Simulated assay, not measured.
Amino acid sequence: MNIEARLTELGITLPQAAAPVASYQPIVIAGETAYISGQLPFVDGKLVTGKLGAAVTLEQGQQAARACGLMIIAQLKAAGLLERVAQVVKLGGFVASTPDFSDQPKVVNGTSDLMFEVFGDAGLHARSAVGVPVLPLDAAVEVDAIVAIRPA
């Protein structure tokens, strides 16, 4: 499957891959595995902030998680790995939420559904979705990824 063509078919325009906000690499390759650092949700160039269960609705959280997924794909593209994705192995979803909010899995579905939409069966993955009290820059969601890549 040609991923660039698939993105075009889906009407998806990737954002510019975000530069790190601290001392880390956005993506590290070890053997045939790409480790993508936690990506924050930028929608129309603006960071989605706040907490689920307070100012951020479930739907807004899902859109934020989708934006994180778009940024993961953008990082793969920037590293020249987009067409080498063999399998999205695992996603780690972090949701800034109030203590009584328990729909973190539904929020992170925003990323999971995107991965399947773009990569098909290669987008099916293992996952964690956890609630946290605060994320960097007051982001509502952060998602990292482990991706198997085909040899060059």
Rank of each mutant, 00 (worst) to 15 (best):
N2D: 15
A5Q: 08
L7N: 01
E9P: 05
E9A: 08
G11Q: 10
T13P: 02
L14E: 09
A17Y: 06
A18L: 12
V21N: 12
A22D: 11
A22Q: 09
A22E: 09
Y24T: 10
Q25M: 07
I27V: 15
I29N: 02
I29D: 00
A30F: 03
E32M: 05
T33K: 00
S37D: 06
S37E: 15
G38T: 05
Q39P: 02
P41D: 14
V43S: 07
V43Y: 13
D44S: 15
D44E: 12
G45A: 09
K46D: 13
L47I: 00
T49V: 11
K51G: 00
K51Q: 10
A55I: 13
V56R: 12
E59G: 07
Q60T: 15
Q62N: 07
Q62G: 14
Q63V: 10
R66G: 03
R66P: 08
A67S: 11
G69N: 14
G69F: 14
L70K: 06
I73C: 11
A78P: 01
A78R: 03
A79F: 03
A79K: 03
A79T: 00
G80Q: 04
L81G: 04
E83F: 10
E83V: 08
E83H: 09
V88W: 03
V88A: 10
K90F: 10
K90S: 11
L91M: 11
L91S: 08
S97Y: 08
D100S: 05
D100N: 05
D100G: 00
S102T: 09
D103V: 14
D103G: 10
Q104M: 15
P105D: 13
K106W: 06
V107N: 04
V107A: 04
V107M: 09
V108R: 12
V108W: 08
N109A: 15
S112I: 15
M115Y: 00
M115G: 01
E117N: 04
F119V: 09
G120V: 11
D121T: 15
D121M: 13
D121P: 02
A122Y: 07
A126Y: 01
S128V: 06
V132F: 00
V132T: 10
V134S: 12
V134P: 00
V134L: 05
L137A: 10
E142Y: 02
E142F: 12
E142S: 15
D144I: 01
A145F: 01
A145V: 08
A145S: 04
I146E: 01
I146Y: 00
V147S: 01
V147Y: 03
I149K: 01
P151Y: 00
A152N: 05
A152Q: 06
